[in-house]
Design a protein around this nucleic acid. Structure first.
Length: 688
DNA sequence: GGCAATCTCCTTTTT
DNA sequence: GGAGATTGCC
C-alpha cells in the first residue's frame, strides 16, 4: 500500500534543535554507566517531558531506551508506571530482561509490550469502560475466513473484478490504520475494482456486523476501541493516563495514524520518550508514516528532538555500503553513518545460478565458520519474504544446522494446532462459529454444507451441553463428536482440555495429515500442551499467542535449543543485530520487488528494507543472489522501469565480488558466458 | 445435486 | 503450503 511519499522530499535533519555541543552537564547518575556515550546519557536523563530521539541504525536506540527506563525508575517513577511500547515480543522480552538484570528488584513491574498487548491489557483491566466484556480476539486467519464467507455469499462472488477476500481484508485494515475512507483506499490501490465498490461496502458492513454479533475483536479493533474511548470520554482518558507516567516508544518511524490516535490524547498527561529512524521506516503497508517523525515538533508542543549519530554496531565497510544504498535514492535521506569501531572486512557479494545453489553454499559456509570455532547463534540469515526462506530451510535441515525461523509459520497459524484448538474454542465459547465450522469439518463426511447447516441449529443452543445433545440427536453426525466435546468440557485446566482434544482427534487428524508431516505435527502437540500450562483459560492462551506470536521453529519437543542460526524476515529483524549476516536473494526482481515498480514510494520502502538488512551486520556482511541469464534477458524485453535493481551500479571498491555460477557445474568457463556475466552490472568474476 | 478429493498455480512485509 | 478450480464419487 502506498504511504504517500513523493520523491525529492527532504527526509530529515532540520528538526534538530539541540546539538551535542551545548548539552547540559551530565547528571551524576550516569557516572557509573560507562557503556553509554554522552549523547545517549543526555537523552536518557533529559528533564524534558516529550522527547524524540532520532538515531541511525546501530546507534544505540535500544540501549538508550533501556537507559531511560533505568533512569526513570531509579529517580522519578516506580517501575510499574513506566511502559515501553515495542514492536515484537522478542524486543519486549529483551528490554525488560536487560533492565531487570541491571536494577534487580527495583525493576519489578516494568512492562514492555506491543501496542496491541498494551491496549488489550487496558481492556481486560476494565472491560466495561470499553464496552468489550467477554470479547475474544481473532487473528488474520479468522478475519480472512469471515471475509471469504461473506464474499462467497455476495451476488457478485463470481466476478473476477470483485477483489478477493484477502485484498478486501487488507484494504479494510489499511483504511482503518490510516484513518482514511474505504473509497479512497480503493481509488488508490484497487482502481479496477471501483465498479464493484457498492458490493465491497456491503461486504465490509456485513463483516463488522458479524464481528459484533460474535463478540470478536480484530487487531485494529483492539487499538481503535481504546482510542475512541479516550478521545470521547475525559474520565476514561484520565484513567488510562493514570496507568502509567511514562510511555517509551521504540521504532517510532513505524507507528501509524491509528496508533497516533491513541497516543495523542495522552500528551501532557503522560511523558513521551520516542525513538526512531526515518531511514528504517518499512511498515508503510500497514499505514506507518515516517512523517510522524518529521511532524513530531508540530504534533507535540513543548517537545525536544535529540540525535544519536555514532554507529557502534558495524564496521565502516558495512556502513559504506549501506550509506551508498541510500545515496542512490532520489530522496535525500541525509544519512551518513560513521563507524565508531573503524575499519573491518569488506562486505561480500556472491552470485549463483539459482536459489538452491545459494542455499547450499550458505549451509557450507556456515559449517566452515562453525568449524573455525564460531557459534551458530552468531549468524543471522535475512530474507525479504517467508517464501524465499524455504530453500534455506531445506539446506539447513539437510546440513543438520540448528536454526530458528522468525517470520515463518506461527504457532497458532499451523493447521494442526488450529484444528485442535477449534475443539477447545467451541467448548469455551459455543457462540464461536468460526471454531465450529473448523471443528466439524475435521470429521470425514462433513464439509462446508453439512457444517453450516448444523451450525444454524447450534446457534439456538444456550450452552455447550445443549450443543452436544443436539449433535447426538443428529443421525448423520458421528457420535464420537459429541462424546469428545463432553469429555473436553469436563476438563478443569487448559492443559487437560488440550490433551483430551488431541486424544479425541488423533485418529481423524492422522487421517487428514497422513503423508503431510504427520510425525512432525504430532510432536508439536506435546509442546503446545506444555505452553497451555501458563494460562488460566484456553481463551487467555489463544489471546496471548495471537497478540505476541511465537514461531513454529521455536518449538522444540526435547529441550530448548540454545545455539542456533537465526533465519529471519527483514521486517521481523528490526532492532536485531548479528556478528555475521547473510542477506539472501538480493537478486534483480527482488530488490525492489517487481510488483512495487509502479509506485515510487513503495520502491523507496523497498530500498529501506534492504538498508535495514545491511545494517544488521556487526562484523561480516554477506550478500547472496541468483542471476539466471535466460531470466535476465527475458526481463530485458520489458520496459525500462523493470530494470531498476538497487545493486545494479554497485561500485567495485565497496564490495568483494564472487561469481559461483559456472564453477561447480562446468569446471571451465565458456567464453560467451563469461562475457555475458561481465556485461551484467557488478558481476565481474573475481576468482581466487 | 451435493459434497469431498485432487490438481494446479502462485507466493510481501505484521500485530 | 495454501487457495481456487476442477474432477470424481455417492
Amino acid at each position: 500500500m502506498s504511504s504517500g511519499i513523493s520523491p525529492k522530499k527532504e527526509y530529515s535533519g532540520k528538526a534538530v534543535d539541540q546539538s551535542i555541543d551545548n548539552l547540559k552537564p551530565l547528571e551524576d547518575y550516569f557516572e557509573k554507566k560507562p557503556n553509554l556515550n554522552n549523547e545517549q546519557k543526555h537523552a536518557a536523563s533529559s528533564p524534558e517531558k516529550n522527547i524524540l530521539v532520532l538515531a541511525g541504525a546501530g546507534c544505540g536506540k535500544t540501549k538508550t531506551i533501556i537507559a531511560r527506563a533505568e533512569y526513570l525508575i531509579e529517580n522519578l517513577s516506580p517501575a510499574n508506571k513506566v511502559h515501553i511500547l515495542t514492536f515484537t515480543r522478542k524486543a519486549s522480552a529483551e528490554i525488560v530482561q536487560r533492565v531487570k538484570s541491571s536494577l534487580g528488584e527495583k525493576a519489578e513491574g516494568l512492562k514492555a509490550t506491543t501496542f496491541h498487548t498494551w491496549c488489550m491489557s487496558l481492556i481486560r483491566k476494565s472491560p466495561d469502560l470499553f464496552g468489550c466484556k467477554d470479547f475474544s480476539v481473532i487473528d488474520r486467519d479468522d478475519q480472512l475466513s469471515i471475509f471469504k464467507f461473506i464474499r462467497a455469499a455476495s451476488k457478485s462472488a463470481k466476478e473476477p473484478k470483485l477483489p478477493r477476500a484477502g485484498d478486501l481484508l487488507d484494504a479494510y485494515s489499511f483504511t482503518r490504520n490510516i484513518g482514511g475512507t474505504l473509497k479512497s483506499t480503493f481509488e488508490e490501490n484497487y482502481p479496477s475494482s471501483l465498479g464493484f465498490f457498492e458490493q465491497v461496502k456491503e461486504i465490509v458492513i456485513a463483516y463488522e456486523k458479524r464481528k459484533e454479533n460474535s463478540k470478536y475483536l480484530d487487531y485494529d479493533d483492539i487499538l481503535e476501541v481504546v482510542a475512541n474511548q479516550i478521545i470521547n470520554h475525559s474520565d476514561i482518558r484520565d484513567w488510562v493516563a493514570s496507568q502509567q507516567s511514562d510511555l517509551l516508544i521504540d521504532e517510532f518511524q513505524d507507528t501509524n495514524p491509528l496508533q497516533w490516535k491513541l497516543i495523542n490524547p495522552l500528551i501532557n498527561k503522560i511523558n513521551l520518550f520516542c525513538v526512531g529512524d526515518d531511514a528504517q521506516s518499512i511498515y508503510g503497508f500497514r499505514g506507518a508514516d515516517f512523517e510522524n517523525i518529521h511532524k513530531f515538533k508540530d504534533n507535540v508542543k513543548n517537545s525536544t528532538i535529540l540525535k544519536l549519530n555514532k554507529n557502534y554496531r558495524s564496521t565502516q565497510e558495512i556502513l559504506d555500503l549501506s550509506n551508498w544504498l541510500l545515496d542512490q535514492s532520489q530522496l535525500s535521506y541525509k544519512k551518513k553513518l560513521i563507524a565508531d569501531r573503524g575499519s573491518g572486512m569488506k562486505p561480500q557479494i556472491h552470485t549463483f545460478l539459482n536459489e538452491w545453489d545459494q542455499a547450499g553454499w550458505i549451509a557450507d559456509d556456515l559449517k566452515r565458520v562453525y568449524a573455525e570455532g564460531n557459534k551458530w547463534r552468531e549468524n543471522m540469515i535475512l530474507t525479504r519474504t517467508g517464501y524465499s526462506a524455504r530453500s534455506i530451510e531445506r539446506a539447513l535441515i539437510e546440513a543438520k544446522i540448528p536454526y530458528f525461523f522468525i517470520g515463518g509459520r506461527k504457532l497458532l497459524e499451523s493447521a494442526h494446532v488450529r484444528d485442535v484448538l477449534s475443539c477447545l474454542k467451541v467448548v469455551a465459547n459455543p457462540k464461536d462459529d468460526l471454531g465450529w465450522i473448523r471443528f466439524l469439518k475435521l470429521w470425514p463426511g462433513i464439509g462446508d454444507v453439512k457444517a453450516s447447516n448444523l451450525l444454524k441449529e447450534l446457534e439456538t443452543c444456550k450452552d455447550i451441553k445443549e450443543c452436544t445433545e443436539r449433535i447426538k440427536y443428529d443421525r448423520t453426525i458421528p457420535k464420537q463428536i459429541a462424546y469428545l466435546l463432553e469429555d473436553v468440557s469436563k476438563c478443569e485446566t487448559p492443559r487437560t482440555a488440550f490433551r483430551e482434544s488431541v486424544i479425541g482427534l488423533r485418529e481423524v487428524l492422522e487421517q487428514n495429515y497422513k503423508g503431510n508431516n504427520w510425525e512432525k505435527r504430532v510432536k508439536d502437540f506435546s509442546v503446545v500442551e506444555k505452553l497451555t500450562e501458563k494460562s488460566n483459560s484456553i481463551l487467555e492462551f489463544i489471546e496471548a499467542y495471537i497478540l505476541e506470536p511465537i514461531y513454529e521453529s521455536e518449538l522444540n519437543p526435547i529441550e530448548p535449543v540454545k545455539d542456533a542460526v537465526t533465519v529471519i524476515t527483514i521486517h521481523s529483524a528490526k532492532g536485531a543485530e548479528s556478528k555475521r549476516c547473510y542477506v539472501i536473494n538480493v537478486s534483480p526482481g527482488m530488490y525492489p520487488l517487481t510488483r512495487t515498480l509502479n509506485d515510487d514510494s513503495e520502491v523507496e520502502e523497498e530500498r529501506r528494507v534492504l538498508y535495514v538488512a545491511l545494517t544488521r551486520a556487526k562484523d561480516e556482511l554477506i550478500i547472496t543472489r541468483s542471476i539466471n541469464e535466460s531470466a535476465a534477458s527475458a526481463q530485458k524485453g520489458k520496459d525500462d522501469k523493470n530494470d531498476i535493481y538497487f545493486l545494479a551500479n554497485l561500485e567495485d571498491d565497496l564490495i568483494e565480488n564472487e561469481d559461483h555460477r559456472y564453477l561447480e557445474s562446468e569446471n571451465q568457463f565458456s567464453e560467451s558466458k563469461l562475457t555475458k556475466s561481465r556485461n551484467k552490472p557488478s558481476t565481474s568474476v573475481d576468482l581466487e
